[in-house]
Simulated scan of single mutants.
Amino acid sequence: MTRLVPGQVAVVTGAASGIGKALAEAFAHRGLNLVIADVDANGLCDTRDELTALGVEVVAVPTDVTSAESVARLGQTALERFGTFDIVCNNVGAANRQRPSWEITSAEWERLLSLNLRSVINGIREFVPHLVHKNSGHVLNTASMSGLSIVPGIADYIVTKHAVVALTETLRAELAGSAPGVGATVLCPGIVRTPMSAQREEGPAGGANAPTASIPTVPAIEPRDAAEITLAAIEADYLYAVPAVNPLVRIRGKVDRLLHEVANQPVPPVAAR
């Protein structure tokens, strides 16, 4: 179980706005020092100034999380400034316009694979070895409610967020054997009132041929509420943090169908040795 205590160091990417900024603020209110990163250098400086006013040390490092070299510089800066870090939040999210999966271009696939998935891979490769070496700390990877369920018309977003969920599940199992003092949580928020949610978390609106999303409309929650739920999940050592209004509406149908169809398929004969 991960305890968040004053004086620890949290690294948070995507901290210039939205959930990343709210996570950084929540850590600051608990007395954690911060290394914050974002590609938006101006917004990052504003966040740094706001957090510094809360009485904690804050280092702002403009970072392109899709670049392994840029993330490596972020990790090096954290170690040079504080000598260690305890919490790592690989937080990023982007979506393309809504369209059927067969119309998504190669460039659109590559954009989301890089932003939503490769960025998390870069963060794991850079930060997890230090946590494993000291056998303490916690990793938070941001996915989405769309990493636990599907919405027609945003296959590129769905695929990348499912991949982040699977990556975190695997990481946690690996840590349990190699460094049991290190935890891992995947953040799967529903609709959160952020710049991205202006397009809705399910994905941006498409044209006349865009599929219709087949999920109930639910209210958005505030970033600070999502952050508080997430920090509680970290301290409880949960694998899944799901800040959302009635998340079971989206999750239960998939799980129930999987269990039903597996249970009703014939069992194949065991191959003879």
Rank of each mutant, 00 (worst) to 15 (best):
G253T: 15
A155N: 11
E222H: 00
S146P: 01
A205Q: 07
R257V: 06
G190V: 13
R257C: 09
N246F: 10
T170E: 13
H260M: 10
L140P: 04
T230V: 06
C188E: 12
V186M: 02
N141Y: 07
P219H: 06
G177V: 02
L148M: 15
S178L: 15
D256T: 09
P243L: 14
Y157D: 10
L239E: 07
D237I: 12
M145E: 13
A220K: 00
P211T: 12
S146K: 07
L248M: 14
N141L: 13
M196F: 13
Q265R: 14
V218I: 08
V164M: 00
T142L: 10
Q199G: 08
P189A: 13
H133S: 11
I191F: 13
L171H: 04
H130F: 05
A233V: 10
V139R: 03
G190K: 05
S149K: 07
P204R: 06
A233D: 13
E201I: 12
I251F: 11
N141T: 12
A155L: 15
H138D: 04
P219Y: 05
G253S: 14
R200A: 05
L175E: 13
Y238I: 02
H130G: 01
V139N: 05
P180A: 15
D256V: 09
R200T: 15
A166K: 04
L148I: 15
K134G: 00
G177P: 00
V192E: 05
G207C: 03
N135C: 08
L175H: 02
H162V: 11
G147A: 06
A232S: 14
A143Q: 01
R193M: 07
A184E: 12
I221D: 06
G207Q: 06
K254I: 13
V218W: 02
E261T: 10
L248Q: 15
I150R: 12
S214D: 12
F127C: 05
Y238C: 14
T194K: 00
V245I: 13
A208W: 03
G206W: 08
S214Q: 11
S214V: 09
V245P: 05
H260G: 06
V182K: 00
L239R: 01
T217M: 02
K254M: 14
S144G: 04
R250P: 06
Y157M: 10
L239C: 05
T170Y: 04
G207R: 05
D156V: 10
E261L: 08
R193V: 06
A179R: 00
E174N: 00
P219S: 11
S178N: 13
L148K: 09
V164A: 00
E174D: 11
R257I: 04
T217G: 02
T142K: 01
H162K: 05
